[in-house]
Write a protein that binds this DNA or RNA. Structure first.
Length: 554
RNA sequence: GGCCUCAUAGUCGAAUGGUUAAGACACCACUCUUUCACAGUGGGAAUUCCGAGUUCGAAUCUCGGUGAGGCUACCA
């Protein structure tokens, strides 16, 4: 067969050769430990948690300053493509503080000399390489009718399983003569381009995965489709060409691709490309009815990274949680270095466990609490405010108008030796500190739930409490006064004494404090009472007492 | 159906043929405390999926089961 003739027949309009592109996209000047990685999502929706998981991995891999992390859009499946999804993907990455240093940038012009970084704009390149592959006898046209959708394919597969026939018969066009091909082309018949595989699936093949380690796989034997009949390449083909021309040095992708490695190796070899290292990552799963399954875009809110943004999880906390899934010794490191930036952690690809982890909200919450507890008040304020500006304008306004006050609220029990671990997402702050930020009149009070003393005594206690309270007291003096006040009003400040005969008292010191807490906050659980009173200030306590009085008398 | 991958407590996982199988989250109890969703101490929780084999010795190596996930597309 005259392959050059065949190549001209199939791709008459291609007038460049592959060397043109190798000249256009030169190799990169990289220092010794530098790597080039890429995130290459399909624009089929929002950023998936699994995508963020991979991006965290990219961040850890490309810390070396001359390393490159670029973003490429793999929009070769028009059926599943969603408008604006690419832009959304890019913006979500930015929201997570991940800025690729090259590639696709949504509305902005793309960055870097290896573009276009959108595959649908690279058709001429793919066709040039396709023509080359045909001209050296590595690929052939297939005129078979294509199966239209997934259901057809599954039906056909099941039928073939029943017939004990393992492979779908794709080779029907393999042996067409050049005359037959010419005739079909002249009739305007569309064709898909297939790899002419010369592999032997019985023969073992050594493969070294950066995550999974050395594996024995088998050679490819399938004539996989390279270019669909609409002229658009399939992932495998686009991947081989793009990652070669863009000089990728490590290909990070989901482990579903692991099966395809043999065919990709054959493709690279036929094209005369150097092989690139692969790192196949586990898939984040979920348990439902006792069964493990992939996180689903439709069913699981946590599959959507935007959910974490909206709910106000600090982005670093989400990333640290994912990093924990990637390298489980991260948390030991974090414990030893509570304030160090996560990128300082020494990440190891080979430490990624190859089982599929299950996403665990409780663990995420804990990581997040730990993270927030280690921030100072300005950091907390700034992150909370920038969240509120996007998702809760009313609250943002309050925070901005009362900056110093807000800082004081957020600083309660923060400068302790062991800071309080309570908040794990910004959306909970408003409710958690509602008594600090919002009009006290709107807070419901029902003293029956906390005490049985009469209103007159209650008022007297609260009033005296304010008189005794000074903002600049030290805590022990304050507490001594509170104890005295309790004793003078039928409560007992000594727990042992109280336990001997509880019926002699209205309650112990703890119920006494709880009474005060409830009166001024409307809550039975709050951070340190003394700190709260300090931040509120004596005037505000008086103000609240007035409101309490009017509520009692209603 | 074929092929591939994985399997240690509810979850994430450490332990590279050699103590009583780490640690974290979650759970429970106790202590401290003005409350707590804080802190401290302790606890329960694992016949390392099952069964054989190799070995003085197996979570670890081998074989066979079982279970789960994936691939088997002109989807990525």
């Amino acid at each position: 067969m005259d392959f050059n003739k065949l190549a001209d027949l199939l791709y008459p309009n291609v007038n460049k050769d592959i060397n043109y592109y190798f000249r256009k996209y030169p190799s990169r000047p990289l220092l010794k430990n530098a790597v080039v990685t890429r995130f290459a999502p399909s624009p089929t929706g929002y950023l998936h948690l699994g995508g963020l998981y991979q991006c965290v991995l990219h961040e850890m891999l490309t810390k070396e300053p001359t390393s490159v992390f670029y973003l490429r859009l793999e929009d070769t499946d028009q059926k599943r493509e969603i408008q604006e999804a690419g832009d959304l993907l890019y913006k979500t990455l930015l929201d997570f503080d991940i800025e690729p240093n090259e590639g696709y940038r949504g509305d902005l012009p793309e960055k870097g000399i290896y573009g276009p970084y959108i595959q649908s704009k690279r058709l001429e390149i793919y066709h040039t390489f396709a023509k080359y592959l045909v001209s050296i006898g590595g690929a052939y046209p297939c005129f078979c009718n294509k199966l239209e959708d997934k259901e057809d394919i599954i039906a056909k597969r099941e039928q073939q399983i029943e017939e004990n026939n393992d492979t779908i018969d794709h080779d029907c066009c393999r042996d067409l003569s050049i005359d037959e091909i010419e005739e079909k082309i002249s009739l305007g018949k569309p064709f898909a381009l297939r790899l002419l595989s010369t592999g032997n699936p019985q023969k073992p093949l050594e493969f070294d995965d950066l995550i999974k380690g050395k594996r024995q796989i088998r050679e490819n034997g399938k004539d996989i489709v390279l270019i669909k009949s609409n002229g658009v390449p399939v992932y495998s083909f686009a991947h081989a060409i793009d990652d070669t021309l863009m000089n990728t040095t490590i290909i990070v992708r989901g482990e579903d691709w692991f099966q395809s490695v043999a065919s990709h190796i054959e493709l690279f070899q036929k094209l005369g490309f150097n092989l690139i290292k692969y790192a196949h990552t586990p898939t984040i799963c979920k348990i439902e009815d006792g069964k493990k399954r992939k996180l689903s875009k439709r069913k699981d809110k946590e599959a959507n990274c935007i959910y974490f943004l909206e709910d106000g999880y600090p982005i670093v906390a989400v990333k640290e949680y994912l990093l924990n899934l990637l390298n489980s010794d991260f948390e030991d490191w974090r414990k030893k270095n509570p304030k160090v930036y996560y990128k300082e952690f020494e990440f190891k690809l080979e430490k990624i466990v190859s089982g599929n982890p299950i996403f665990d909200f409780q663990k995420l919450n804990d990581v997040s609490k730990e993270y927030i507890a280690n921030l100072n008040k300005e950091e907390v304020y700034n992150q909370l405010l920038s969240w509120a500006k996007k998702y809760d304008l009313e609250f943002a306004e309050i925070l901005e108008k009362n900056r110093d006050y807000s800082l004081n609220v957020l600083n309660i029990e923060r400068e302790n030796e062991k800071p309080r671990k309570d908040i794990f997402k910004w959306s909970m702050v408003k409710e958690y500190y509602n008594y600090m930020f919002f009009n006290f009149e709107n807070i419901n009070l029902n003293f029956d739930t906390v005490t049985k003393i009469d209103n007159e005594l209650l008022y007297k206690i609260l009033h005296t409490y304010i008189i005794l309270f000074e903002e600049n007291l030290d805590k022990t003096t304050w507490f001594d006064r509170v104890k005295k006040l309790a004793d003078n009003n039928g409560f007992c400040s000594d727990n042992k004494q109280y336990k001997q005969d509880p019926s002699k008292y209205h309650g112990n010191i703890s119920s006494f404090c709880n009474l005060i807490r409830y009166a001024f906050t409307g809550k039975t659980n709050t951070p340190d009472l003394f700190s709260i009173c300090q931040v509120l200030g004596k005037d505000e306590l008086y103000n609240r007492l007035k409101i309490i009085k009017s509520k009692i008398n209603e």
